[in-house]
């Protein structure tokens, strides 16, 4: 039995002036426990979709939900706060609590190692600290549905990785639904179980990550960093669409996979095997959509 539905989007259109920023024709539903990774290039309509759900932009169509606005938590791409006081006062006012009396908030502050930042003003925080500040408050809301819009953009690799690890472990045993917009696919590998693929305001596909992988990539894929030598070695093997710096070899059967791996070992070539790679799903889904729609 499927989990209860939290949100349904149907025939949604958003215009910015004369431009159509988003057009969703087929229904999309987000259910309890879904972890939806929203992916697409810049201008695909990812943030517009979130803003529509939050009623921050005007739209035509229907977004049906029984959730109240208080039951939806959001981490926007840009989050700004007043600079006239230390962050602890902002946090206490927004969450309407006292840090000294709130065990859960204390736990979150310590979990995100934010103790020393509580005395600082928002503008004095680093990029990662700013993100953690909003994440703490968003997590404190403990909402049934939470949006994270490019939560790690602008952060260095180490900070990004640490932040995502913390988020993954925080949500591990929780049944809250998440919608995460990100350009970093490796983050979504850990956080998302569904994907919503957008391109130029249109939905390319929406579904479970493993089902989408099977649909666009087959059983498994072996990914290599591109080189002329590798291209020559595998010239007769079936390839999937991939970014220019990669070669993605399709492994439709176990035998085929073994054959490829033997060849790789023989030539002492590094490789990655995946049955869920989001970047390859995205590239192939986009290519198939372009062909079908003759773009």
């Amino acid at each position: 039995m499927e989990n209860p539905e939290l949100l349904q989007i149907e025939n949604l259109t958003v215009h910015y002036g004369k431009d159509t920023a988003l057009q969703i024709e087929h229904p999309i539903s987000i259910r309890k426990g879904d972890r939806v990774g929203i992916i697409g290039a810049n201008g695909a309509g990812k943030t517009t979709l979130i803003k529509s759900i939050l009623r921050l932009v005007n739209y035509q169509g229907s977004i049906h939900t029984n959730l109240t606005m208080e039951q939806i938590a959001t981490h926007m791409q840009f989050n700004e706060y007043t600079d006239t006081m230390p962050t602890r006062y902002i946090m206490e006012a927004i969450l309407q609590t006292k840090i000294s009396q709130d065990k859960k908030l204390q736990e979150l502050i310590s979990y995100f190692e934010f103790e020393d930042c509580l005395r600082k003003k928002y503008s004095k925080l680093s990029g990662g600290q700013k993100q953690r500040f909003t994440i703490i408050m968003v997590m404190m809301q403990d909402a049934p549905l939470t949006f994270y819009d490019e939560v790690t953009s602008g952060l260095d690799f180490e900070t990004r990785q640490k932040l995502v690890e913390k988020m993954v472990s925080w949500y591990k045993n929780k049944d809250s639904s998440l919608c995460i917009v990100s350009h970093y696919y490796e983050e979504l590998e850990h956080l998302a179980n569904k994907l919503l693929i957008l391109d130029k305001g249109h939905v390319i596909d929406y579904g479970k990550k493993d089902e989408l992988f099977q649909k666009y990539c087959g059983r498994a894929v072996i990914i290599l960093n591109y080189s002329k030598e590798k291209e020559t070695v595998f010239q007769n093997y079936e390839k999937l669409a991939s970014p220019a710096h990669l070669i993605a070899l399709s492994c439709e059967t176990e035998e085929k996979e073994k054959e490829i791996i033997e060849l790789l070992l023989k030539h002492n070539m590094d490789y990655t095997r995946s049955s869920s790679d989001i970047e390859i799903i995205y590239t192939n889904a986009k290519e198939r959509y372009s062909k079908q729609n003759s773009i």
């Binding site: 208080e70 006081m85 006062y89 006012a93 309407q96």
Partner: peptide
């Protein structure tokens, strides 16, 4: 389903706004 507290006029928000006002040179 958890119903989050609806935020209304409160002492903590008035204090926050007061800090906002006094923090303006």
């Amino acid at each position: 389903m958890k119903e989050n507290k609806r935020k209304t006029v409160s002492l903590s928000m008035i204090t926050y706004e007061l800090r906002n006002v006094t923090g303006n040179p």
